[in-house]
Simulated scan of single mutants.
Amino acid sequence: AMAGLGLRVIAFTRGEGAPGADPGAAEGLSFLGLVGLIDPPRPEVKAAVEAARRAGIRVIMVTGDGALTAQAIARQIGLAVDRPIEGAELDAMDDAALRAALEGEVLFARTTPAHKMRLVKALQARGEIVAMTGDGVNDAPALKQADIGIAMGMRGTDVARDAADLVLLDDNFATIVRAIREGRRQFENLRKFVRYLLSSNAGEVLAIVANLLMGGPLILLAPQILWMNLVTDGITAVALGAERATPGTMNRPPRAAGEGVIGRAGLAMILAFAAYTGLATLWVFGHFLAAGDAALARTAAFTAMIFFEKFSVFAFRSFHHANFTIGWFSNRLLIGALGLSLGAQLAAVYWPPLQGLLHTVPLGLEHWAVIGLLVVPLIVVPEAVKLLRRAG
């Protein structure tokens, strides 16, 4: 009954023995009573276990406590358990039986460090990515074997910390779940950064190569290309990498182990934006070149390319949610970078020192009207696609 409440039960006896007698002998002892000890789970652990479940992360309890105590703790933290398996039963299982047991909701009690090593290997054999926590010297081999070994920073031994990939400074399971959320945010932001820069650069390459194949004046000059890549693109891309986690980050299953940063969907997105940016810029150049002023047409194309790239960044802020959901101005760093980049381009068009450096001329309202109209699809179409996808 006490173990069923999550208590670790110690029996106390008393007795007298001859000097040198075996202290473990049970003869002649009088039972005094039972003492129950409890190490209650932290209040935030239950919510963390549920968050892990929603994120597609399976939590398996492996403990040295008895099965009744372990099941009681599992109930307290909301961990579903259909079958407890103690160390002796685990020793009697062959690998096939263990793999079958791991298909269900199990916990492992009365285990030793050797059992932990076997469980890590069994899960990895099923293609799972395994993270394991441990604090003792004997946990070091299993921590090393796991894909991610997590040692306790407060009560863990030096050996365990050295063998682990991560050290949990507060010994709190909820911190692991928060770290997973932050890791997903950073990986998603890395994807945004890479996809955005590739789409921008690919659009520039498309416009330049197509212009060369068509012949005629150059659409962009070397100083203008350097200006785009060194002054405007980098600022916006870095700010994009500071996006907060989007809604639902912890409601999606983990990505596949071999999934790359770009991916098929990312490649399609890069090609679509590059095609629009490159071809629209090429059209702007040809449209204004018809008037016979190559410098004016080049300045319009140069400015159009930068405005296309800057406003397309909103499509890369989230791959699942529209800006109406996450907030157009929620990333203040991005808004600041966008304003700075666009302001720098206005200076490049109208400030004489930069005009001479970049070979630009002032643009009129008719030029801005054309550029503005071509910017609109880069904002409206991605938003509409995301909203329709969510609605479906």
Score class of each variant (00 low, 15 high):
A304K: 03
I270M: 07
D147A: 07
A92L: 08
G64R: 01
W351L: 14
D162T: 14
A100T: 15
R264H: 14
F319E: 15
P113V: 08
F319Y: 13
V49P: 09
N201M: 13
L289V: 10
T133G: 04
L166M: 15
L197T: 14
P217E: 03
T246Q: 15
D39P: 10
A80P: 09
V106C: 08
R110P: 07
L5I: 00
F108P: 04
M2Q: 14
P41N: 06
L166A: 04
I335D: 06
A268W: 11
R110M: 05
A21G: 10
A210L: 15
N331P: 01
I208M: 12
H359E: 13
D165V: 03
L5D: 12
T63H: 01
L373I: 09
L358Q: 01
E16Y: 11
A80F: 07
A164C: 07
M305Q: 11
T281F: 00
N211E: 03
A163M: 11
P41H: 11
I225C: 03
R255Y: 03
Q345M: 15
D94V: 10
I60D: 04
T299S: 14
R58H: 06
L387T: 09
D39V: 11
N172Q: 00
I73F: 12
R118E: 10
L342S: 06
G392S: 14
R75S: 09
E44K: 03
F324I: 12
P223S: 07
I73Q: 09
I176C: 10
E50R: 11
P23S: 04
N189L: 06
A348F: 05
I326P: 07
K121I: 00
V261F: 09
A67D: 12
I371Q: 03
G336H: 05
E259D: 15
R264I: 08
P223T: 05
S199E: 06
M117I: 05
Q145N: 11
W368H: 13
L282A: 11
A25K: 11
N331L: 01
K192I: 11
A337Q: 09
M2I: 05
H321E: 14
T175E: 05
A222M: 13
I73L: 12
R185M: 09
R14V: 13
A315I: 02
F173Y: 08
P113G: 06
F285R: 02
G36P: 05
I150D: 01
I225N: 04
V81G: 00
S330E: 13
M250T: 02
K192E: 09
A301I: 08
L213H: 10
V159D: 07
I60Q: 03
A275Q: 05
L98V: 14
G203A: 00
A1G: 14
M269T: 15
Q186A: 14
A272S: 14
A239R: 02
F311K: 05
